[in-house]
Design a protein around this nucleic acid. Structure first.
Ligand SMILES: [Zn+2]
Ligand SMILES: [Zn+2]
Ligand SMILES: [Zn+2]
Ligand SMILES: [Zn+2]
Lengths: 137, 137
DNA sequence: CTCTAAGTGTTATATTATTACGTACGTAAT
DNA sequence: ATTACGTACGTAATAATATAACACTTAGAG
């Protein structure tokens, strides 16, 4: 019965759970796993996986974060607006992930899609690389 | 045949477990999940998840099948040789998956990658669509 | 033949994600 | 103000996906 989380104007504002999950991802900048998020936010009052997954689902839906499927992880969106079209580089050796901001590349893909008359609703591009530090070693 | 076959048999032949898993995927043509494969091949002698996952891992490594990460499923390779570069369409409504064969598209992506000086080792492209039957309804 | 790399079979366990159920709150129509 | 509705919440249980650990077998290279 310890509720009352001053929601204030449902439009625009996230709920407490959504907020703390988003903040964690924001501050981290790296892909995080759901159960890591859960552990990290135990002290903030998160107790169950479902609380995390519900917040993550909503944030993905809002385009504020992305799920990187191949590593079951979530990362803050690095762009102002991806419109659900995402592109990442993933290091094959250390797993490091970066969202690609290169507009020329993503526009190019969009053009290719048009040229080939694929009627797509969105896309997710995963480019596997060897990151700088992994290339050295 | 000849007495000059110095190449290894090993590289050509699959083991029994790898064979039956590949055959199932081949005959299905659709993405299948590991535990579905396990159930389907109980009668062939597969008893544990690990047997399936080991076979799948090997087949992926050989490029004979692909894993579709966003649905935790595996599908037979539709091309002679993808060189680990993959591209799929996935229906957002029914989940139906097709491997894209369009060489113009994949070459175009490869060119874009080169133009943008991304040194990639491979890529995986997932295009979300509404398939024909889902578009009707 | 002997050594070795790869594969096998099995049990147990880890990791990731969802179902089910009841409660609480904000909004808008009555 | 009361009702109805949609969304979010909290909790427990469980499903679905994947790997660890260990002992054993097989097949090919030398
Ligand atoms: Zn983004
Ligand atoms: Zn790296
Ligand atoms: Zn293929
Ligand atoms: Zn469909």
């Amino acid at each position: 019965m310890s509720s009352t989380h001053t929601y204030s104007k449902k439009s625009q504002s996230l709920t407490k759970n959504q907020r703390i999950v988003l903040d964690l991802l924001q501050n981290s900048g790296e892909p995080l796993k759901a159960y890591f998020i859960l552990d990290s936010l135990k002290k903030e009052g998160l107790n169950s996986p479902l609380q995390v997954y519900r917040a993550l689902d909503k944030l993905v839906e809002l385009g504020k974060i992305h799920k990187i499927e191949s590593i079951n992880s979530f990362i803050i969106c690095n762009n102002s607006n991806c419109a659900s079209n995402t592109a990442f580089t993933i290091c094959e050796r250390c797993g490091k992930v970066k969202e690609i901001k290169n507009k020329y590349l993503t526009d190019g893909v969009s053009d290719l899609v048009k040229d080939n008359q694929l009627e797509i609703t969105r896309y997710n591009l995963e480019f596997y690389v060897l990151c700088k530090s992994c290339k050295i070693n």
